[in-house]
Design a protein around this nucleic acid. Structure first.
Lengths: 106, 106
DNA sequence: CTGGATCCTAGGAGATACTG
DNA sequence: CAGTATCTCCTAGGATCCAG
């Protein structure tokens, strides 16, 4: 049962779900992620990426060029998180619809 | 894609996952939940229960007795969240094993 | 027994400035 | 471009006291 706690811990943070979702099927550069998550600050983005990396769900590849280029992608373990995200998305879709209906009926 | 955000919002909070998991297959009393979640304060528990109720994933039934008796259970919508929790548990189990192996290999 | 009402604190997240 | 280093701010959550 504590297994849920571990998953929760990996995903704890305001942006991690979206970062993982954005990396779902391809590699992305730091600046792409930043642009995708409009509103996130550099500090927060770096933090979240570091934590995800330490938890072993994403990997970081640095190209020693000028200017620097860093790419992020999911690891094997990260891929195993996708079913969780997909379930969340499925629930969310229904949830939104029901909420909108409820609002409409007021 | 914002669907994930809605689900995240419903589940945001330190204890909600466990409350839902505890209600998974039966109705529970307030005092049972409090005992199950050792360490939670009354204030927090009440807050989390209220939020879950407002999001429509649990329902609250009050028995007008002395002393009072209140039971919580999942709603239809709450039941739809279970697949998410099960996926999280499945991932967590693997995650723990891999982490322990990694610790062991140090 | 179940919770309402306050007060308070810790830590996550944002803003800003700076750098290899 | 992709970060570090501070600083501040906010709010979820805990502690405590009170009540039907």
């Amino acid at each position: 049962m504590h297994a849920i706690a571990f998953t929760q811990n990996v995903l704890s943070g305001r942006w991690k779900y979206f970062i993982l979702w954005y990396l779902k099927d391809t590699t992305r550069r730091y600046s792409d992620i930043k642009h995708f998550l409009e509103g996130i600050s550099q500090g927060s983005l770096t933090n979240q990426l570091r934590e995800l990396e330490q938890d072993g769900v994403i990997k970081r590849k640095v190209y020693p060029t000028v200017p620097p280029k860093v790419e992020y992608s999911l690891t094997e373990k990260g891929l195993k998180l996708l079913p969780v995200l997909e379930m969340m998305k499925a629930f969310g879709k229904e949830y939104i619809e029901e909420t909108e209906v409820a609002e409409f009926q007021k």
